[in-house]
Nucleic acid binder design. Sequence first.
DNA 1: CCTGATTGATAATCTGCTGTTATGAATCAG
DNA 2: CTGATTCATAACAGCAGATTATCAATCAGG
Lengths: 298, 298
Amino acid sequence: MDLKQLRYFDAVAETCHFSQAAERLHVAQPALSQAIRRLEAELGVLLFTRTTRQVQLTPAGEFFHRETRRILGDLEASVLGAQSIAHGRRGLLRVGFTGTSAFTQLARLSRMVRAALPGVVLEVQADLLTPAQVERLLDGRLDLGVLRGPVVEPGIETRTLTREPLVVALPADHRLVPEPALDVVDLAAEEFVGYADARSAVNEAVVATCRRAGFSPTVTHRAPGTAALLALVAANLGVALVPESVRSMQLTGVVFRDVLDPTTIDLSLAWPAGHASPLVSAALDVLEREGFYDLNPA
Amino acid sequence: MDLKQLRYFDAVAETCHFSQAAERLHVAQPALSQAIRRLEAELGVLLFTRTTRQVQLTPAGEFFHRETRRILGDLEASVLGAQSIAHGRRGLLRVGFTGTSAFTQLARLSRMVRAALPGVVLEVQADLLTPAQVERLLDGRLDLGVLRGPVVEPGIETRTLTREPLVVALPADHRLVPEPALDVVDLAAEEFVGYADARSAVNEAVVATCRRAGFSPTVTHRAPGTAALLALVAANLGVALVPESVRSMQLTGVVFRDVLDPTTIDLSLAWPAGHASPLVSAALDVLEREGFYDLNPA
DNA sequence: CCTGATTGATAATCTGCTGTTATGAATCAG
DNA sequence: CTGATTCATAACAGCAGATTATCAATCAGG
């Protein structure tokens, strides 16, 4: 059996006329007669009753016609589907976010992707620290990552989204609240609330900032995420240095203050270098076109 | 695109190994490489990533594999379906019954057909008089008929099922009830209840019976079916001559009595002669084998 | 690090399927 | 009865696709 035979059969079944079907298929009429005959021989089923004047589907032929029409349609659809996947217009895009970036970037990214690539399903993995995202990008569990960067890992390409200064989160009744802006040195004697994971890029930036100011921070309490971290600050258990975008997370009992000459920390988009999958390429194109990178560093 | 290409693709996708797939397909390995390459070129989609040591499906290839496997399965199923229809193992069998025959024959026939041909759907057209069944058998609206016969119409073949004598249906308080058996002449003065349709084969047999006994029946009331006819008899509106199988239809107020030297009336199975459809042939085979015709004329 | 084994790709060749043209046979209309 | 229509058959030709032979790349084991 052969797809061509099925297409021929389909045409003859629709017209019930060998010559007309032949014309429609751009072949000579004997080719059709032969092809249908071969098909019937292979199936062991008479598909048409034909005289020299009239061609008619048998019940078996009628059934087979309905089936083949559906099957040919399905085949065509599956070709289109495969092409969609190959061109990145369809598939599963797994995007990772760091704890603080999900709030600001997730909505922008998903809006742009869904509008331009309606066939793409987004799978969000939130609250992934930068090293975890890098690992998953490298072993293929993740397609895109919004993370603290820039990443210098080979095999990962990144592009900077925003450069944020660190700001201080203080308990509302802290002695430094009246100051409009603080010097990091002012915090030397404070107890700090940090992120639980030692590999957190924010943690590293905090340590670097303090060291630059000449002291090593005393991290007394540790939180598994930004919400918990702010809650600890609100509970008066310490102060914290966080990226400025955390300000969008309002929490009573916590106030933010700028830092003089602050360390900055980048937020970047990262993806596996080299063998970029069509999905990732398409998504990157969309984000470029839609201005995902055009952020005023807040 | 070609079914062979799809089968080749399927084999390679399952094994992820060109040489092994080639062996399984009983072709040389280069044929596979070429075929897959052609398929990819036609779709414009890379289906495999391959090095000399490793073959792997792309996401598009994975999708296409799922689809083609389903499609190839559907195609195979539809071939089997068409063959089932062609061999009469599947389809719609439309069977007609006369008013009185449905009760006794419908259950037997449907039991035999359903047991031997589970793929066949029965469509019962009951209460069809013999001429109506003949007409429908000839123009293709009916495949089989259980009717009063034998039919001499060309284009119809029949086989006798039972030969029934006519019996008398009397009102329970009729003067003749005490007699164990009646002579038809005894009914010469009675009013008769007949079937409404003048072409009814039973009607004709009744008239013939009476004429043989030397009188013409006075048919005062007419019923559209056997139940109504017996109801009229029960209501004391007349007597009726009916086939003996009607006795199986008990109705208070009606008693049956044998007729001496009765006219007999045949019940036959009828079907279109000549171009017997596979379904009808298969059904006739089954009925033959299962003893549908082995009835003791009651 | 080298060598042989494995595996997919490529080149050249050939077989046979399938389409074409020419023609026949059967049916229908006028 | 005759011409037109339509499907089937026969003979032939062209090319798609299979085969064999060979190459190139990768990996395993000593």
